[in-house]
């Protein structure tokens, strides 16, 4: 049963990954990318890491990929122009891909021979009766608390950076102030003027 699920999900992941790079329409590419994420989340569930699987879906598929899709849909991509540089960039791209493949093979080989956590640390076995959410929490908030906080700070810096880059205060723009609107009364909002016949109003 698990083997069938694994092969189905693995096949879906790889097929979707291939289609990401081979699809002609960029929007289709992003949709296949989302399929790949989703199948990867399924593989996590098979590994017993259901918390990570759900986080992958909530964060990457539910938020990041939506914005990605958003941007790609709004772009007006010229396909012929995109394809012109293919032969020119092929060697560089090939070198990068080759390095990545080699690295992945080394990592996979090391994990296969020495286990996921290397030689020194004993890998965390999931104790029966404790959900892996709790196990992750125990490790994350005790042994790795400083790294965890540091990762949060890095994200905070990135967020502030994005805000600083895009925040502009234009003078002369009328903005809505809800508090001011609600606080308005007939006294502050209007003025009753008695107009004598034949005179008109002047400020």
């Amino acid at each position: 049963m698990q083997a069938i699920a694994f092969y189905l999900l693995a096949f879906a992941t790889i097929a979707a990954g291939l289609l990401v790079v081979s699809a002609k329409n960029p929007v289709h590419s992003v949709l296949f990318l989302i399929t790949a994420f989703f199948s990867a989340a399924g593989l996590f569930v098979l590994l017993g890491a259901e918390f990570l699987a759900m986080l992958l879906i909530v964060v990457y598929v539910g938020a990041v990929a939506v914005l990605f899709l958003f941007v790609v849909m709004m772009l007006d991509v010229d396909f012929t122009a995109l394809r012109q540089g293919f032969a020119q960039y092929l060697p560089i791209g090939g070198i990068v891909a080759g390095f990545l493949t080699l690295e992945m093979i080394f990592v996979a080989a090391t994990v296969a021979s020495h286990g996921a956590a290397g030689k020194n640390a004993t890998p965390m076995a999931s104790a029966p009766g404790i959900p892996n959410t709790e196990m992750i929490g125990r490790v994350l908030y005790t042994d790795y608390i400083f790294f965890f906080q540091l990762a949060g700070l890095v994200l905070l810096v990135a967020m502030i950076g994005a805000i600083v880059l895009t925040l502009r205060h234009k003078p002369g723009v009328k903005r809505q102030d809800i508090g001011k609107q609600i606080a308005r009364t007939p006294k502050t909002g209007m003025e009753i003027v008695q107009i004598k016949p034949g005179e008109g109003i002047s400020e």
Partner: peptide, 10 residues
């Protein structure tokens, strides 16, 4: 599921 709420959110 042990992560039922997260599943719903996802």
């Amino acid at each position: 599921l042990n992560v039922g709420i997260l599943y719903l959110l996802a």
